[in-house]
């Protein structure tokens, strides 16, 4: 166990230095007043974790996601407003009315099948719903709100 974890760290350092992981990346949450707060992987890991298994239209088979629910992050940030504008690394953005955000879902996933996600595979942060749990999560709107490579949450009044 110990060796394998050491080995994996060494291997990741030696064989895949170009693979950009979560370190260095964070989700910035900006309030309506202009103030903002950054949520790093560490910060997120310290918040209450939510996990579920589901299939998605972008992946093969059933996968397990874990992370922090959107409502928990917004609570933690302490901003309130009408809409959350979610932006991705490629500047894709979509608006999410605050009233429609569930208590548990969606989550900002930090891990898929227990591993962090590289940018090359929609990481490091991915907004996901438990699509199999409810047909309402398999709508166009839900798919549009499933922002991957999430980088910023802007709360608008």
């Amino acid at each position: 166990m110990k060796y394998s974890s050491i080995f994996s760290v060494v291997a990741s350092l030696v064989f895949s230095p170009g693979v950009v992981l979560a370190e260095g990346h964070s989700v910035s949450v900006q309030g309506p007043d202009g103030s903002s707060r950054k949520f790093s992987l560490e910060t997120l890991d310290n918040l209450p974790q939510t996990s579920f298994e589901t299939s998605t239209i972008w992946t093969d088979g059933v996968v397990a996601f874990s992370g922090v629910s959107l409502s928990a992050i917004l609570d933690e940030a302490g901003f309130s407003g009408a809409i959350v504008r979610m932006s991705a690394l490629n500047d894709y953005s979509v608006d999410f009315p605050m009233a429609e955000i569930g208590k548990d879902y969606p989550i900002v996933a930090t891990r898929m099948n227990g591993t962090e996600m590289p940018v090359r595979d929609k990481g490091p942060y991915w907004m996901v719903f438990p699509y199999d749990a409810d047909p309402s999560y398999r709508t166009k709107t839900a798919y549009a709100r499933s922002v991957w490579q999430l980088s910023k949450l802007l709360v608008i009044k």
């Binding site: 972008w58 490629n90 940018v119 090359r120 490579q149």
Partner: peptide
Amino acid sequence: DITLSRVNLVTKG
């Protein structure tokens, strides 16, 4: 990486 993540989208799911 971002481009490659998009390539994944058309080869999977």
